[in-house]
């Protein structure tokens, strides 16, 4: 009987010891400091492009095609740079689909079939118009548009078919298709030449 009691006491003692050991094994020597929360907000590059065309059934060379100039308004939260390309194509058969191989890019020469008046401070370089562009050899950087400022920039003031260069195409209902492709990028850490000089409009 006495022996049984001793055994029971031993088992209980061992059990308490095991629990004590187990508990103390979590009590490492540690120290803890937590920083206050670190939150990053990703910037945003966002522009609105607005403009109005003259509503008309048929157009003739030199007739103004734009009612209100096309204007970009900056709504970005970070500094940015912008560029655009102006493309045109005459489709002689109105039922034909647009041929992506036949786009003509509007450049800074006068031998084009359209006339366009580009807003101030745009510089033409390798197929694109860069706002405030400064050419440096094979690369270009544009004017910085501050993220905090809601700047409005005129892209296209007027547009018409160039009577000197557009001739009779022998078809009725020749379609003129204009495409304005605009791009903006964060000002820092990436250059236009890294993004490529051509804007994919296909």
């Amino acid at each position: 009987m006495k022996r049984n009691a001793k055994s029971l006491i031993s088992i209980i003692a061992l059990f308490i010891l095991a629990i004590t050991l187990a508990t103390s094994s979590y009590a490492w020597l540690i120290s803890l400091r937590r920083s206050s929360s670190i939150v990053f907000v990703s910037g945003e590059v966002r522009y609105d492009l607005v403009g109005n065309l003259c509503e008309q059934d048929y157009i003739v060379p030199e007739k103004p095609l734009i009612n209100d100039p096309y204007i970009l308004t900056n709504h970005s939260s970070v500094d940015s740079e912008i560029r655009f390309q102006l493309f045109y194509q005459f489709v002689t058969d109105a039922n034909s689909p647009i041929d992506n191989e036949k786009w003509n890019g509007f450049d800074d020469t006068n031998n084009q079939q359209i006339k366009a008046s580009i807003g101030d401070d745009w510089v033409y370089f390798k197929g694109c118009w860069y706002y405030g562009g400064i050419i440096d050899g094979d690369s270009i950087s544009g004017s910085v548009i501050k993220g905090s400022e809601s700047t409005s920039i005129t892209v296209l003031e007027s547009l018409s078919v160039n009577g000197d260069n557009y001739g009779n195409m022998g078809n009725r209902n020749v379609k003129l298709i204009i495409k304005i492709a605009f791009q903006a990028k964060q000002k820092d850490y990436v250059e236009w030449n890294e993004l490529g000089f051509a804007i994919d409009i296909s």
Partner: peptide
């Protein structure tokens, strides 16, 4: 990168 892009398509019919 942080970018934005817009494309406008404008169609006219030439007179004859």
């Amino acid at each position: 990168w942080l970018t934005d892009t817009k494309t406008s398509n404008i169609n006219f019919v030439m007179g004859d």
